[in-house]
Nucleic acid binder design. Structure first.
Length: 261
DNA sequence: ATTATTTGACCGAT
DNA sequence: ATCGGTCAAATAAT
């Protein structure tokens, strides 16, 4: 449908046939909505028990090798969430501290912690490319930033003109041009998959983002009828945060999220 | 000189 | 013994 829409947008308005861009936009919205509910139903992160142990009083196992037994704390169940994005950047300063090969995963998993760990910030994340879509990174975050670090730059929303992803239907530009005075926080809220205990919060978040997506589709419809249509129709179409790759799969009946924000 | 990344060792859980 | 998360020494980058 995104491909059809893109094709449609390359034609003069008068040449639009029986299928209207509005209909396509609404169908795309429906796909987003349905996909979101599938994601929320299936993408729960397995819970791990909390706990920890004392790290003091290190002993020597082998000469020159520190004994780290009992040093690791278990991951807390709460305060973790996951996002999928074509970019690893999220506006925070991270420091890589590990990389592991993961069973049945084509790509290694990378481990990052906040640059300001020494100032007490407990935020960490794990980033892994998705085997089925190497274009996408699945990022699992643990703990929120407690550092006062203001992101060096705002979390970058995808722009379709990125040379790495030239075939992206990116819904950013419409939002930018039409919603510049809109609340920054609401536009930057990522759609996240949190853990079970945050279910209601998660649903509220998702319905908020779905309604964001809806209003963006409205903007898309408005945009299609506007004068600037002709100018923009050759470029990527943008709907803030919810981007679709239209050429990654030659298959028309597969549609996927390129970015869930 | 300081800070970040790479990479194999080490850890707990299974 | 295997797996995935973390540590830290060596190395690279700034």
């Amino acid at each position: 449908m995104a491909t059809k829409l893109q094709t449609l947008l390359h034609k003069p308005v008068k040449d639009h046939g029986t299928v209207s861009a509005e209909d396509l936009a609404l169908k795309i919205l429906t796909s987003f909505t349905q996909s979101l509910s599938v994601l929320t139903a299936s993408a729960q992160i397995p819970a791990v028990d909390g706990g920890g142990s004392d790290c003091s009083g290190w002993s020597k196992k082998k000469p020159g090798v520190k004994d780290r037994r009992g040093c690791y704390k278990r991951r807390k169940t709460s305060d973790s969430w996951m996002t999928i994005s074509p970019v690893m950047e999220d506006g925070y300063a991270w420091r890589k501290y590990g990389q592991k090969v993961i069973l049945n995963s084509e790509y290694p998993r990378c481990y990052f912690r906040c640059t300001y760990k020494y100032e007490g910030c407990k935020a960490t994340k794990q980033v892994q490319r998705i085997k089925e879509n190497p274009v996408l990174y699945q990022t699992t975050y643990f703990n929120h930033h407690t550092c006062t670090d203001t992101p060096i730059r705002a979390p970058p929303f995808f722009v379709g003109s990125d040379p790495v992803e030239p075939n992206l239907l990116s819904f950013q530009t419409i939002t930018q041009s039409k919603q510049d005075d809109h609340d920054q926080n609401s536009t930057n809220n990522p759609i996240v998959m949190t853990e079970k205990e945050d279910q209601s919060k998660e649903e509220a978040q998702i319905s908020e983002d779905v309604s964001d997506a809806k209003s963006s589709v409205d903007l898309l419809q408005e945009f299609i009828g506007s004068e600037s249509f002709g100018f923009h129709s050759c470029g990527p179409i943008s709907l803030h945060g919810l981007d679709m790759d239209v050429n990654q799969f030659g298959d028309l009946d597969t549609f996927h999220f390129d970015e869930i924000y």
